[in-house]
């Protein structure tokens, strides 16, 4: 209980703020539709309402507050509306349906996992190179850092277009953008991890006249494990973000990114929120999964 109480407090606070914000965010559209249905709203002039503040409108039309929670296309959907939409699109639809979030979630997840695997592999290889070669240390690290300063939104369409022009589409371009985001934390973490053994540990291996390979497998790699797992948690979340961002310019309205995009085309805020919540839960599940593997691995290594 003591573990959940703080989390629960935050969740309650977020929901309270969310519910409190809904009337103000939706009041204008709500008043317009109520007026059309014959209700008397103040002010009755549409232009005056447009220029009035949200707060004043809510104060003057308190009768409309309950209606702000039940709009068809709310600007800010209430949590229960998002929950209803999630229920509809996650549980009630067949997973093969194009309206099912599970269907779209899987499309995004497959790109995420492939990208994460590529990113992790590349990250570890780069880190090994950086730790063992001074030239790589000097040359690769600045580029790795520079790569992360470019907004992914700018580079994602370019990757999609370039790969499309040579006939690569679908999963691979998304996975590459995913990998582009996830390799970086792995490089940084692994470089630190592989350098974690102190001078004494390295001297000890020298007294055994150990080879560089033996030093890597017996000392550097095991010593880097706690760092690797910390990086993997960041990396997998970044990979998911990468996959979603890649789906925006990819077109085809497939995947969670596609859902968000079509939601914004058609003013379906509920759909965007549903996809958002689904993506957040997916990310949490992936991080949790890595946490479990981490616990088991480090326990078996005697490190936790």
């Amino acid at each position: 209980m003591s573990r959940f109480a703080p989390v629960l407090t935050i969740v309650v606070a977020i929901f309270a703020f969310w519910y409190a914000a809904v009337p103000f965010m939706n009041v204008k559209e709500t008043l317009t539709s109520l007026e059309r249905a014959g209700a008397v709203v103040t002010p009755s002039n549409a232009v005056e309402r447009r220029d009035a503040s949200h707060i004043a409108l809510v104060m003057k039309n308190s009768f409309a507050i309950s209606a702000t929670y039940a709009q068809d296309r709310p600007r800010l959907p209430a949590p229960h509306q998002v929950a209803q939409d999630l229920w509809k699109t996650v549980v009630m639809k067949k997973v093969t349906s194009k309206r099912s979030l599970v269907y779209h979630g899987w499309i995004t997840l497959s790109a995420t996992l492939l990208g994460f695997a590529i990113g992790t592999g590349a990250g570890i290889l780069l880190a090994v190179g950086i730790v063992h070669s001074r030239a790589m240390d000097m040359s690769v690290m600045p580029w790795a850092i520079a790569s992360q300063t470019i907004p992914i939104l700018a580079i994602a369409p370019m990757i999609i277009v370039v790969l499309n022009s040579i006939g690569v589409q679908g999963l691979i371009p998304k996975a590459i953008i995913s990998a582009y985001l996830s390799f970086f934390p792995v490089v940084v973490g692994m470089v630190k991890g592989l350098r974690a053994p102190d001078a004494m540990q390295m001297d000890l291996l020298r007294t055994y006249s150990a080879s560089q390979g033996q030093g890597f497998w017996k000392l550097r790699l095991p010593a880097s494990m706690p760092y690797l797992f910390a990086s993997l948690k960041i990396g997998v979340a970044a990979a998911l973000v990468g996959a979603i961002v890649a789906e925006l310019p990819a077109g085809g309205a497939r995947g969670l990114g596609g859902r968000m995009l079509t939601g914004s085309y058609y003013g379906q805020m509920v759909q965007i929120w549903s996809a958002l919540v689904f993506a957040a839960v997916l990310a949490a599940a992936l991080v949790l999964l890595i946490g479990l593997v981490q616990r088991r691995t480090l326990k078996r290594m005697g490190l936790a």
Partner: peptide, 21 residues
């Protein structure tokens, strides 16, 4: 002599690998 592994060296700290028994 080092490469011929002529000596054993004991450091001030035990420096045991925590992941090994």
């Amino acid at each position: 002599a080092r490469r011929a592994r002529a000596y054993g060296y004991v450091f001030q700290a035990a420096g045991l690998y925590p992941w090994r028994t």
